[in-house]
């Protein structure tokens, strides 16, 4: 498959994934991503198949882009109009993201249980992570922190029953 066909195929998959978005938003998103690909290719200084594949890999699967777009439906478009220099796609660190990371790391050390829980609330409040990424982060915290506590309580309860029987 040549480079142009790869881009065409990617944009086709993006359009298909964006089927649930309103047509105007879908067209806008496709246009933005196409522009982003063109800029990345211009920066890379080549349009060979490897470069195009790298650029598309860095963009991520079309589903994830659509998920992020769907998650970002809340903020009004006036936000972008008020800051013309801001990038079109929401990226970078905002207060919510920094608070989430600080609560998950330092918060977990200094405020056990409350810190990570607050961190997860901030993670879910952010529009810059996809739903899947939020779910994976929540899964990590739940499996590593909460499950062992439940297992420990279970073992302790089992131990009490055993000693009671003796």
């Amino acid at each position: 498959m040549d480079a142009e066909a790869l881009v065409h195929d990617y944009l086709g998959r993006l359009e298909a994934a964006a089927g649930s978005l309103p047509p105007s938003r879908r067209a806008e998103l496709t246009g933005e991503v196409r522009q982003h690909i063109e800029m990345a290719l211009a920066e890379a200084g080549g349009r060979d198949e490897v470069t195009v594949r790298n650029v598309l890999d860095r963009l991520g699967p079309p589903d994830e882009i659509v998920d992020a777009e769907r998650g970002a439906e809340g903020p009004p478009p006036a936000w972008a109009a008020a800051q013309p220099a801001a990038p079109a796609l929401p990226s970078g660190w905002g207060g919510t993201e920094i608070a989430a990371i600080l609560l998950l790391t330092l918060g977990a050390v200094f405020l056990p249980i409350i810190g990570p829980l607050l961190g997860l609330i901030f993670v879910w409040a952010s529009v810059r992570w996809t739903k899947r990424q939020k779910a994976v982060a929540t899964g990590i915290v739940v499996i590593l922190a909460i499950l062992p506590i439940i297992l420990l309580l279970g073992v302790r309860a089992g131990g009490v029953v055993t000693s009671g029987q003796l």
């Binding site: 989430a100 996809t130 922190a145």
Partner: peptide
């Protein structure tokens, strides 16, 4: 014995989740 495990796992879980989110954000930005 239970308390150190409990105390260690919560920060570890938070740090792992934070690392995952930071990597996800950096991958999206690049």
């Amino acid at each position: 014995m239970d308390v150190p495990l409990f105390v260690l796992l919560i920060p570890l879980a938070g740090i792992l989740a934070a690392v995952y989110l930071v990597v996800a954000m950096l991958r999206r930005r690049s």
